[in-house]
């Protein structure tokens, strides 16, 4: 059982590196969607799959993170005719390198964390930390507003992986609340991107610099 979870987590780690290395936004959106679906599948493997709550959570996560939100972003790309390139602040090779170093550090660091027996051997904690780092990296080194939203989503995915260990602490309502907030957040950000596009005829946040001190 745990072997399967760990292999999925390895896929997620590889997807993280892929998002750092790719130059096409559409690819990043697809990767985030795939990550969402994988995250949706994981509760079923860690917890009792026959339980209604686990089932609903899996469907809700996969549906929102894997389908609704990526679709919203793809539509925004199409409607606003956003250029396909990601426009990083540092070169893609460098961000890939930073991501690899971050992942290695996360793996090394997680070994020294005081973890519960069952979690110490698995990849849940390092995968969570590495995904959080990837999200932060994308957030800070990409100029376009839409890629910053994607960075936020990857960051949230990392937090979600950590949450997989705590299913009893997070009742169904809270899970749904978290997902709903995420959805509304992306929706509001989408509206703002739309306005940024109209105001500056570009979705690059580089133009958003009149409020500097």
């Amino acid at each position: 059982m745990n072997g399967l979870v760990d292999s999925l987590l390895v896929v997620i780690l590889l997807l993280n590196l892929f998002t750092l290395g790719t130059s096409r936004i559409r690819a990043v959106i697809q990767v985030v969607a795939l990550q969402g679906i994988l995250l949706g599948a994981m509760p079923l493997m860690i917890h009792d799959p026959c339980h209604l709550q686990t089932l609903l959570m899996a469907v809700g996560t996969a549906g929102l993170k894997g389908w609704v939100i990526p679709n919203m972003l793809s539509r925004a790309m199409r409607d606003l005719s956003i250029q396909r390139e990601v426009e990083p602040l540092i070169s893609l090779t460098k961000s890939l390198l930073l991501g690899a170093i971050g992942t290695a550090l996360a793996l090394a660091f997680a070994r020294h964390l005081p973890l519960v027996e069952g979690h110490a051997a698995g990849l849940l904690v390092p995968a969570s930390l590495s995904t959080v780092l990837t999200g932060l990296l994308i957030l800070t080194t990409r100029i376009k507003a839409i890629t910053q939203v994607l960075g936020c989503l990857i960051f949230e995915n990392g937090v979600f992986i950590f949450g997989l260990m705590l299913i009893e602490a997070l009742p169904f309502f809270v899970e749904i609340g978290v997902l709903l907030d995420l959805l509304v957040g992306v929706f509001v950000m989408g509206i703002i991107i739309n306005h940024i596009n109209r105001e500056f005829s570009s979705v690059s946040t580089e133009r958003l610099s009149s409020l500097k001190e």
Partner: peptide, 21 residues
């Protein structure tokens, strides 16, 4: 105001995601 809204949304979302962790 658009710029301010974007900064607010993004910075606070990241902050609040840290709080979730």
């Amino acid at each position: 105001s658009l710029e301010a809204t974007w900064k607010y949304l993004l910075i606070c979302s990241v902050g609040i995601a840290l709080a979730l962790l």
